[in-house]
């Protein structure tokens, strides 16, 4: 059974909007939470400016438990929690919740990795000037790591397009949903091709914007 393209275009457009919404909201929330987690992870490390064994171990265990779980399983496993928090498990808004949970751990790791690569001497110089831990975090750690951090977030964004397709199949809407229900279940190759092309375009745009921004901050 073929779709009628005259009436189907608005659906494609709507689905594209849903995918973009899911990705952007998830990116914003998971960046906020993930960056905070990554920073906390880094500064509570042994020998670092806010060394704290308890917080560090707690975060470490949490990350190590959540990270290896495949997203599709996390999606299902989190659905009771999603219902509790968002009121429903169906729809674009509801999909943002599990996507954020999954993505913030990835962001936390990326943030931590980028912070570790900052020369400890630079942090020490700031300490020697009498900078408080908070001033070091916002005035030194974040600016010093910003360039590679943006590349890391771009990488996450591309992954989120992938997540959004999966979330779509369990009721999140968006291009993934469309591709699955029309392209796969109803064997409509043209829908499949159109959605795939749009997804590729979205990824390209995200990568382009990310590269551009990181170049601005790396000044290279």
């Amino acid at each position: 059974m073929r779709v009628d393209w005259v009436t189907f275009w608005p659906r494609i457009l709507e689905a594209t909007g849903e995918t973009i919404t899911m990705v952007i909201f998830t990116l914003v929330f998971s960046s906020m939470i993930g960056i905070a987690m990554g920073l906390l992870f880094f500064v509570t490390r042994k020998g670092n400016i806010l060394e704290n064994k308890f917080i560090f171990s707690f975060l470490n265990i949490l990350v190590n438990i959540v990270r290896p779980i495949p997203f599709i399983i996390l999606l299902v496993a989190l659905s009771p929690l999603t219902r509790a928090v968002m009121g429903t498990t169906i729809g674009t808004a509801a999909a943002v919740f599990p996507m954020t949970i999954a993505a913030c751990f990835a962001v936390a790791r990326i943030v931590e990795n980028n912070l570790v690569s900052i020369d400890p001497g630079i942090i020490e110089a700031a300490q020697a000037m009498g900078a408080s831990p908070l001033r070091i975090i916002f005035g030194v750690l974040i600016p010093e790591a910003l360039g590679p951090l943006i590349l890391g977030l771009t990488f996450v964004t591309v992954g989120l397009v992938d997540f959004s397709a999966m979330a779509g199949t369990v009721g999140g809407g968006g291009l993934g949903d469309l591709a699955m229900s029309y392209g796969y279940q109803r064997f409509d190759t043209s829908v499949m091709i159109v959605t795939v092309v749009i997804l590729i375009l979205l990824v390209q745009i995200a990568q382009f914007v990310g590269n551009f921004l990181s170049r601005v901050f790396l000044r290279r």
Binding site: D119, G121, I122, E124, A125, A126, A128, M129, V140, P143, E144, L146, F217
Partner: peptide, 12 residues
Amino acid sequence: MIFQSFNLFNSR
């Protein structure tokens, strides 16, 4: 304090 490896802020 000054250092052997200078320790300047690269982002500034």
